[in-house]
């Protein structure tokens, strides 16, 4: 299967990445590229290590083999200060939002501004309100994270992720467990932010419908390898049985329904 890696257009380039947890190979010599300015989706069943991939890109985890280049810099060879600088240019939206629970919405969004810039409070106020307005939660600024619904928490986390105006955002399972309205809001936000701010977005998800709806390019992972990649049309028409089972949600196919076991008859009638 050809790789779609072209180092010039790719803002992120993953080459020959291998990573294991214990004995299990999470990634087995995979290579992929994330195009600048586009929405790229990484899909696959639960447990294939999609969150792990984001952590590898962000430099929180180290690969066994292979390299990850972000903007032509090898992430894992960077010194601590340079890595932190790189992270300031990346926004990350965690599955649970990961807001700090002991400060309110306003302070959460203001946190990266207060930590990394020397702006005074009135400038910070302007920026925070702008970001909150972009996600539609300007009126919720005094609430505590404990008072927010899951969907609202994610939107606040999104506002926080764009506080420093990063050039790329990584979304970790943004659609999981959301009601249809919150889902629609998130999908709208992701697409709009990507287009209006010229961001590069990476979405890690296993929600087929939403992802196919907004992604420009998709990688499907399975058992440590890339099972398929392409535009949403290419993926939908993929010849791979496994990809088809995944997309359609069939109960049985290359991923079997039954966990490996002995013959049924023998087991029942010992």
């Amino acid at each position: 299967m050809e790789n779609s890696v072209s180092p010039d257009k790719d803002i992120i380039s993953i080459q020959n990445l291998t990573f294991s947890r214990g004995h299990r190979k999470i990634f087995d010599n995979i290579s992929l590229g994330i195009r600048r300015g586009k929405v790229t989706a990484i899909m696959g069943p639960s447990g294939t290590g999609k969150t792990t991939l984001l952590k590898l890109i962000g430099g929180q985890l180290y690969p066994e083999h292979g390299q990850i280049f972000v903007r032509r810099q090898n992430v894992h060879k960077l010194k601590r200060a340079d890595l932190y600088n790189l992270r300031k240019r990346m926004g990350m939206l965690f599955q649970s939002g990961a807001l700090l629970t002991d400060i309110n919405v306003y302070d959460n969004v203001a946190l990266p501004l207060r930590e990394h810039t020397a702006l005074n409070e009135s400038m910070i106020r302007t920026l925070v309100l702008m970001k909150l307005h972009a996600v539609g939660l300007r009126g919720a600024r005094d609430l505590m994270p404990g008072e927010l619904s899951g969907g609202m928490a994610r939107r606040v986390a999104l506002a926080r992720a764009i506080a420093l105006d990063p050039t790329m955002i990584m979304y970790d399972e943004p659609f999981t467990g959301q009601d249809p309205i919150s889902l629609g809001v998130l999908v709208k936000l992701i697409k709009e932010l990507n287009d209006t701010l010229g961001l590069t977005s990476i979405i890690v998800s296993h929600d087929v419908e939403e992802t196919l709806g907004i992604a420009d390019y998709i990688y499907v992972l399975s058992e440590g390898k890339i099972a398929g990649h392409g535009t949403p049309e290419q993926i939908s028409n993929s010849g791979s049985e496994w990809v088809q089972q995944f997309l359609k949600g069939n109960a049985d196919g290359p991923v079997h329904f039954h966990y490996p076991a002995d013959d049924y008859n023998n087991d029942l009638f010992q």
């Binding site: 952590k55 962000g58 929180q60 932190y84 600088n85 992270r87 300031k88 990346m90 990350m92 965690f94 599955q95 649970s96 990961a98 807001l99 700090l100 629970t101 946190l111 990266p112 930590e115 990394h116 986390a157 926080r160």
Partner: peptide, 21 residues
Amino acid sequence: LMKATEQLSGMEMMAIDPIKR
């Protein structure tokens, strides 16, 4: 709990050292 809810991870990804803060 901060570790379990990924708050520490989140801070690291925002380039804020959780140990210092």
